[in-house]
């Protein structure tokens, strides 16, 4: 095998590995995406604990990589009673205020892709 062949093969291997790594994971892991009435309100890293005021109607909290709705002025308060979310595809919905919290980014190992019921 010539020296050139070895370099060629190595180059392909290195690049393929790099492409696989880059396409397999997002740059900064899972993120919280907040939308109001279908419009993007904001996108936040789950890595940093914080409180997010969503207009005057809802407040959500990121703590220890989990997101929950801490306050809402809607009558049913289904969103506040929702289980905290952290895995890709999980959502919390405040239907009356049309607020959706969803997790994007890293694919959860066995998180459900949707929930029936």
């Amino acid at each position: 095998m010539k020296k050139g062949d070895i370099i060629l093969i190595s180059a392909i291997l290195v690049l393929a590995a790099a492409v696989l790594l880059l396409s397999g994971r997002s740059a900064d892991g899972a993120r919280l995406v907040v939308t109001v009435d279908g419009e993007l309100f904001g996108s936040y890293s789950l890595g940093e604990d914080r409180e997010i005021r969503i207009g005057s109607s809802n407040i959500c909290v990121i703590r220890d990589g989990e997101v929950s709705m801490s306050e809402a002025d809607c009558p049913d308060r289904v969103c506040v009673r929702s289980k905290p979310i952290r895995r890709e595809g999980e959502t919390i919905v405040c239907l009356p205020n049309r607020v959706i919290l969803s997790i994007t980014g890293e694919d959860g190992v066995d998180a459900p892709d949707a929930i029936a019921g």
Binding site: K83, I85, I92, A111, I115
Partner: peptide, 29 residues
């Protein structure tokens, strides 16, 4: 709350659908 799967999620993987637990927090399965 009605879920419809078209095909699979990816080549070797079906869609994973959770079933809501009645009278429990949204997202509790």
């Amino acid at each position: 709350g009605n879920v419809r799967a078209v095909g699979r999620k990816s080549a070797g993987k079906s869609w994973n659908v959770g079933i809501q637990k009645p009278f429990s927090a949204r997202g509790e399965l």
